[in-house]
Every structure is written in C-alpha cells, then in structure tokens.
Design a protein around this nucleic acid. Structure first.
Length: 440
RNA sequence: CGGAGCGUAGCGCAGCCUGGUAGCGCAUCAGUCUGGGGGACUGGGGGUCGUGGGUUCGAAUCCCGCCGCUCCGACCA
C-alpha cells in the first residue's frame, strides 16, 4: 500500500482520552478511532492486524479439528430464557426490542445458541463429539469502558464450544484446546501463560486463563520460568492421540502458574528462586469445562448405544482477538512506538523513500514495491526523512527498507530491524532476499 | 452503580472566576529555502464555543435542563 493514498491518520500528539500506552499508540498509529464509548472503528492498518491475528487463530483451530461456523450477533431473548440466563445476566447484556416488540439481545457469548444448534442438528450419539468455533463481534455493556480495546464494549472474539459424550471425551477436548491455544499464542509472538482459574461450582482443574505478560496488566501473576522453555510447535504431538494430549497436559500443568486469586504460596515456595517469575498479566484467553450445564438446561440429550440417556458434556474456549491487539502492544513497544511481532504487524515492511523525485530513489522504491506484494507500506510522501522515520517507528513495522539518494545510486539500501534497532547496508537483492517469508 | 471532572478549529490547549465582536501550538493549504530522525521563513484557510432554554442592551463566560466523553471506586474479559 502507498502511504500517500492510505487512510492511516497518525497523530503526533497524544489524544486526551487515552490513558494507557496501547490505547495511545493505537490512536497515534492511526489504527482505530472511537465512535462511541467503548466502541471502535478499525481503520485499515488496525483491521490488518485483526485479520492477521484472526488468520492464525483460525489456522490453529482448524488444525486442532475444530470446525468454523458463523453465528449471528443478534440473538433472541427466548433462547436465553431456555438456559435461565436471561434474567441472571446483568446490565452487561444489551437488550433490544424490534418493531414487533420482540425481545432481542446483542450476544455477549454464544453458549445458548450453539447448544440449540447442535441439539437440533444432532440425531445420534454417533454424531458426537463435535467442536465448533466462530470469530464474531460480541457486546458487553460495561459500566465503565476504558483502556481502549482492552476493555471496550464491542469486541472481536473467537469462541469455541465442545460437545462430548462423556467426561473423558470432554477432558480430551479441553486438552486439545489448551495445546491449540499455546501454539496460537506462540505463533502470534506473545508469551501467554495458562494460569489455573476458578472453576466455580463445577470443580476440578479444567479452567485456565491465558495471560499476556505486561506491566499494565490487570492481574498479578506468578509463574515458573520453565514455561518460557516449553516449545510446543516443534513437539510432535497428535491432536487425535489421547496419550499425546495427556502427556502434553501433564507437562503444561505441572509447571506452576497462577493469578493472585489462585496463588498457592506453598507450591510457590518449592520453586527454585531463579525460576520464579512475578508480574502483571492481561487475560487474552480462557478455556473452561462446564459439563452438562447448558445441555441439561436446554433439553439436549441423546440415546446412547445401550439406550440410556446421554447428556452431552460441554466446554467453551475464548480468545479475545481485538483485546489481543492492545495486549500485544502493551507487551511490545518502546518510547518511539509499537514493536510488532512479525506475525501480526499490519505491514511486515515499511519502504521509506527518503527523497521522492530523485530518479534513483524513485526507481529503486518502485521496483521493490512492485516485487513485494501486499505486505509492504510504501512511504512515497514528500515528507522529510525525520518524519518518515518517526512514523515508521510509531507504526512499528518489523522491518524498514530505507532508500536514500546516496545508497540508491550505488544500488544499496538500508535495512532496519524495528525491535533491535540494528541496521544493515545491503544491495537491493540481498535485502529483499532477507525479507522473504521464512528467511528472516 | 457511587464519587469527580471535561466538552472552544483535525489534534493538544488558553480564554470563563471579574459578560463587551474568539486566541495559541501542532496539523492543513500556497510559496521559498531545505532534505538521513516529526526543519525554517512568509502568506492563507478553517470555529453553530456539545445542545436546548433562561438572565442581560450584550453570553464561550452567569443560571437551569439535556446529551456526549473521561477519571477514581465497585463490577467485569
């Protein structure tokens, strides 16, 4: 994309309404604009991040055998009366009445809807297990929206739901999802640690929150640094093999990690001092086994092979996609701006033409731009070099290709790595080769 | 939901107390110089002062209502 033709309205000054760094940077980098309290429009650069995160989430869900569907944002109040939650859910639920005085709501979550859909579609126990997800906008009418997209009212979420015939099956679904989540976060380039979470009346150990570590996090978290060495992408684990899943789950949950609510000082004391890690976390995902809670309430049962009645065991699994954008920035920025992990940057590369109008600069930039495809932002404006550097750093592209008149005449470009600040003077072809996917 | 603020040009703000024809910085437009870390100079454009009412000869300024946004706390992902 050419910056001269893009709607990426960067700001030099900090908007008064933004208090925390991710909110400020998202506004300043031209990614989002607030349109009402806690509701944001995603401008082109912000949308690209949302789409890159979504794509990775989608790939990992699909890889774990979860099927994608798309449920609506608007739901019927009657559906929620089936589970009894319509009257229980508080003011966070946005209730709407249509022209026929029918009661509707903007969905804050989809347990009821998915349960009804599966209930009405599944005919026999042979149709289970099922696991399904969608990536959809949700609305929770927070009393006090703040922190930009970290605590907005409208937010994009991946939510998945599993249906199994028995507890063992539900446990397997849960473990699969935990692995999928850890792989997802690893690919996104953020460290997210699964923390033991409150399971409420269900009990057991089948609820985890995933926290991204950032100084502005809302929770105090404690964990064993052994998590930092857990590489799950290279581990040869088969989602379909229960033994693999059990072994993985054992490994992951043996390492201590908890938020302050669930912090166990006895267990903490046993961890070697040099492995203790303590800090703040932003919750970006949660996985939860809740058994037959909704299937029972909503009359979802099947005849088993021996004729007995089976009430499916369920779980639900969320990833806050829009929230992740803020969380990643909280975890990865400096005074100059955002430092995007490679996988989620709106553009992997910024191409800075330091002297538009200079024949050598223009020719080289146009050539690079043409070769690179969609994932590059070409700063072709007639701004001063300093302004281009400042904006590129602000927007946080992982790489900058800097083309100046001196270098261009000699066929050289400068490559700058945003995260480290390293610069390399390279021939044009070598620079491009270095940036090809996988070459890094 | 309790408490506290704010709303004046695209953004950040002053002006309000003590009423008298609306200002600064940045951005923007034109031109000149400049040209590797948000440059300089000259000249221009842009505002129903959130909104409705009231007081007054006269309201951005004083009074009342409403709307919007923000902060602290409670709640929440």
């Amino acid at each position: 994309m050419r910056l001269s033709r893009s709607l990426i309205p960067t700001l030099k000054e900090i908007p008064a309404e933004a208090q925390i760094v991710s909110h400020r940077l998202m506004l300043r980098a031209g990614m989002v604009r607030q349109t009402a309290s806690g509701i944001y429009a995603w401008l082109p650069a912000g949308l690209r991040v949302l789409q890159k995160i979504s794509a990775i989430v989608r790939q990992e869900q699909n890889a774990a055998g979860v099927q994608e569907l798309l449920m609506p944002t608007i739901q019927s109040a009657d559906l929620w009366r089936e589970s009894g939650r319509y009257d229980v859910y508080g003011k966070e639920m946005l209730r709407i009445t249509d022209r026929h005085e029918r009661e509707l709501l903007y969905g804050p979550t989809n347990e009821e809807m998915i349960t009804a859909l599966v209930r009405d579609s599944v005919k026999t126990y042979r149709d289970l297990p099922q696991s399904l997800y969608h990536i959809q906008w949700k609305f929770r009418d927070e009393g006090r929206p703040r922190f930009g997209v970290l605590r907005g009212r409208e937010f994009l979420m991946k939510d998945a739901y599993s249906f199994d015939l028995d507890y063992e099956g539900a446990v397997l679904s849960y473990r699969r999802m935990m692995l999928a989540y850890m792989r997802t976060f690893q690919r996104l380039g953020v460290r997210a640690i699964p923390m033991v979470a409150d399971t409420g009346p269900i009990g057991g150990d089948l609820s985890h929150e995933f926290h991204v570590l950032a100084p502005t996090g809302e929770s105090q978290v404690f964990y064993d640094s052994a998590f930092e060495d857990l590489d799950l992408n290279s581990a040869n684990l088969d989602y379909e093999n229960p033994d693999d899943m059990a072994a993985f789950f054992q490994r992951a949950t043996n390492i201590y990690a908890a938020t302050d609510e669930k912090h166990d000082s006895e267990a903490w004391a046993k961890i070697p001092a040099d492995r203790k890690r303590e800090g703040r976390g932003i919750e970006v995902g949660q996985i939860f086994y809740f058994g037959p809670k909704y299937s029972q309430a909503m009359g979802f049962s099947l005849a088993g092979p021996d004729g007995s009645k089976i009430i499916p065991e369920m779980g639900s699994y969320g990833i806050g996609v829009s929230r992740l954008v803020g969380a990643i920035i909280e975890a990865s920025h400096d005074d100059a701006g955002i430092i995007w992990p490679d996988a989620v940057a709106p553009f992997s590369v910024a191409l800075l033409n330091l002297k538009p109008g200079d024949a050598a600069c223009d020719a080289m930039c146009e050539d690079i731009y043409r070769q690179f495809g969609d994932d590059i932002l070409y700063d072709d404006r007639s701004e001063r070099a300093g302004a281009k550097f400042a904006e590129a750093d602000l927007m946080g592209h992982p790489w900058q290709i800097i083309v100046g008149p001196r270098g261009a005449a000699a066929g050289m470009v400068e490559l700058k790595r945003r995260a480290s600040g390293e610069r390399f003077e390279l021939p044009r072809a070598a620079a491009l080769a270095k940036l090809q996917p996988g070459a890094a």
